[in-house]
Every structure is written in structure tokens, then in C-alpha cells.
Design a protein around this nucleic acid. Structure first.
Lengths: 226, 226
DNA sequence: CCATTGTGGCTTGTATGCAAAAATATCCTC
DNA sequence: GAGGATATTTTTGCATACAAGCCACAATGG
């Protein structure tokens, strides 16, 4: 009606859920950029709803740190300083390292073969230089590792922080040779996993994530961004 | 100026903020037990407000995982399975381990002396067997470590997960000799920090947290709790 | 010319009203 | 008396209404 965000119209998805998901997605993908003001009435009109569900969605986003509410002064997309972004990347790197260590020790043969399959398929994507596909693959790869920890809570946390970093990761991955390096780093991680050496997998994963962060920092500094 | 009733800074606390904080506190302290239904109208009456701010508070709590909303079927305090609790403890243990490793390498002399001061003061508390004081101390001790990582985001995450585990930790610490052991484990961690060995501090912290978790598991199993 | 302050519009925060879905009670059939 | 369909009540989800605070801007005074 008002907006083209129809989707599959999940059975009975609540309105405020739809709004929250849509906004979270737009923030994560950078469609709504940091610092942008989120006018309640405006959003309500856009989603063809009233302010009530919009407000509820915004509160949830605030609890997740995606937006910032200033009492009686409106809601804005969380504006992150470069320092905070680096803090988040460092935390993410540590969490990913933790995940791959646990996953190495706990994954089932099925999970292992699924991961190998994913990794193998990424070679073609890199050859084509298809950034969007690599983005999708990369997400699946890391989420497969989270899952293999057999720790549902940890997996949720890892996904949450990954989502919050997605906007930045997106910009960063568009650099040609980073894509190649990314896969090479995955390769090294896979090898450690194959050898059952969780500690090494962990160290390599941390390095992998910090490399990505460093690439991002250069990007930020070059673009006077944030 | 005219009235000394409440805090000057928080004069304008929003209603839904007050409600959210109050509920979060009651859930964390176990005053509201897991699975309890949270009736909107009832809460509204209790806080002398309407359902609107109550609903916003509940959405925020949901985003933080403290309550569970079942579409059109009301909100309940998050009921956690023993598996999930153990998952959370494991995650917390890893995060704490990560924190103390970073803190060891990054803490300033001032932060280090503050931590030593805290730890020293805890001896008297243990001797008295004062559980409540130890609870307070313990929180301060761990938060000092979070802070010393000089990673604000990580510190926030650590505090958040700690808060979510508080309800369970509370029950668990009431065991006599666990208090003694807790301090001894702190002592070992402090030693590793003093030697600047972040890896060892990290391992000891992980063990410390997992010991607490194990003590809790025994408690859970003994009490058919959750 | 700049600072101050008051006013009007606009946005947020809260209350209330209404419709629809669950939950519960009621009644009918067997 | 049991089981199930149906009516009633309760509660959630959303919309609308209203009050109060913020902000921009202009008018005023220094």
C-alpha cells in the first residue's frame, strides 16, 4: 500500500515487528545513515500505521543499540565514533575467535562437511569478483561456525554483533584484493579446523577479523567518515 | 532548589524508563520469577500509568532477552532452560576471560592499584561471610576489569550479560565455602595480572567462571529449578 | 549589531478508545 | 456426565486524542 515492503507477509507478523525488522535492515545496510533523525509520524505514514507501533519498534531498536533516543528530542540512528567502531570490531573478533575454537571441538561431521562445502563454493565467487554473493556466502560461513558451537546463546550474540557491524563491513569488502585475502584467511582457518586445532583456528580467526577491521580503518580515515 | 526530594539530574526521567528499570531490576533479582505472566493493565495500575508506557518498557525488555513476547498471547518473564543458562554461563566465562586478558595488557597503573585495593578489601568481607557485601564487591571487581580493557563496547556487553545472569548467580553464591573459593580464584587471577601474563589471567578467569557455573548447575539439579 | 526572551508550531510522551484474537465460561447434544 | 460448539469475557494490538516539552524565529531591548 504505502510502502513496497510487502515481503512474504508472514502468517500473522505483528506490525511493530515488521517495522522493527525493516528499520533494522535499513540501518544495517546503511540505507539509513548514522545520525539520521527518525521522525515518528513520518515513519508511521511510510508504513501505513500509527505512531504507536512505530514507537514500540524504536524502543526495541534502542535496546539493541541501533538507534539512540534522546528524551523528548527524538530518535536518531546511532552515530558511532571511529573509536567505538574499532571497539566493536575488536569485540567481534574475539567473539568469532571464541566461536571457532568451540566449534572446532564440538562440530558434528555433518556440520563440518557443510562448512567445507560452503568454503569450496566460495572459490568461484571470488574468481567472479561478485561482492554481493561473497557477502551472502561470508555470512553463511560465519553463521555455520556459530551454529557449530552448539551454544545457542553465543550464536545469538555473535549474530547480533555481526548485524550491527554489517553496515561498515559492506563498505569495506568492496575493495578488490580484500576479497581474495578474505578467502585465503578462511582457507587457513579451515585447515586448522580440519586438524582439530581449536586454538590455532581461534588465532587465525582473530587475525582474519582484525585484518578486516584494519582495512576498514584505512577506509574510514581515507574518507573522513563517521 | 526548592525541593530536595529527588536527584537533581534525573528530574525528568521518562515514565517508560522508570517502568523498564523497575521491571528489569525485579527480574534480575528474582522478585519476578521466570515464566511469570506480565499483564499490561495490571502493571499499568501498579505504576499508576496507562498501558502505553508499560508496553514500550516491555518491548525494550524483550529486545534485551529478559522477557518473551508471544504474539497476541502476552508477555512472560523469560523462562530459561538449564541448557540455555549453561550456554549463557559459558559465554559469560569466555567474555570475562577475554576482558581480563585485554585488561592485563592495557590497564593503567591507576586502574591496577584500584583493582588491588578492591581485592584486598574483599578479605574482610569473606571473613565475615557477608554474602550481600561480597556480591557488591564482586560486581565492582569484575566491572573494574571490564573498564580496564579500554574497550567501551566490550565493557557494555560484559555488563549486560552479567546482569542477565545475576538472578542465578545470586542463588549460587549463598553457598558457604564457594565464597572462600571465589576469593582464592580472584587471588590467582590477580597474580597473573601482576605478572603481566594476560593468557594465564584469561585461563584462570575462565576457570573461575566455569567453577561458579558448575556450582550453580549442582544447585539447579538439586532444586529441580527452571 | 548582538543577545535575550517570548511565542507559535511541531514533536514527543501518555492516556483512552476500539477492534480482533485468546482465554474462559456456558450450554447443548449425546 | 462428557465432549464439543458457541457465547462471553479478557487481553492484546493498534489508532486516535490530548498534553507538555523542544525548537526556530522573530520581536525587543541593550
Amino acid at each position: 500500500m504505502t510502502d513496497g515492503l510487502d515481503g512474504p507477509a508472514e502468517d500473522r507478523e505483528l506490525l511493530f515487528d515488521r517495522i522493527r525488522n525493516a528499520l533494522a535492515d535499513e540501518i544495517a545496510t546503511g540505507k539509513l545513515e548514522a545520525g539520521a533523525a527518525l521522525d515518528e509520524q513520518q515513519l508511521a505514514d511510510r508504513f501505513g500505521a500509527s505512531r504507536t507501533p512505530v514507537r514500540e519498534a524504536l524502543r526495541q531498536l534502542a535496546a539493541n543499540g541501533l538507534v539512540e533516543v534522546r528524551a523528548r528530542r527524538g530518535v536518531v540512528v546511532a552515530r558511532m565514533t571511529p573509536e567505538r567502531i574499532m571497539d566493536m570490531f575488536e569485540t567481534a573478533a574475539e567473539i568469532e575467535a571464541m566461536c571457532v575454537r568451540l566449534a572446532t571441538y564440538r562440530m558434528t561431521p555433518l556440520e563440518r562437511s557443510h562448512l567445507i562445502e560452503l568454503h569450496d563454493a566460495s572459490e568461484a565467487i571470488v574468481k567472479k569478483g561478485d561482492f554481493d554473493s561473497y557477502d551472502t556466502f561470508n555470512r553463511a560461513f560465519h553463521e555455520a561456525i556459530y551454529h557449530a558451537t552448539h551454544n545457542g546463546f553465543l550464536a545469538e550474540q555473535a549474530i547480533a554483533i555481526r548485524n550491527r557491524l554489517m553496515a561498515f563491513r559492506r563498505a569495506q569488502l568492496r575493495q578488490e584484493e580484500r576479497l581474495d585475502r578474505s578467502r585465503a584467511e578462511h582457507e587457513a582457518i579451515m585447515q586448522a579446523i580440519a586438524e582439530g586445532d581449536g586454538e590455532m583456528a581461534s588465532r587465525r580467526m582473530r587475525a582474519h577479523m582484525l585484518n578486516a577491521a584494519t582495512a576498514l580503518r584505512r577506509f574510514i580515515e581515507a574518507n573522513k567518515f563517521g
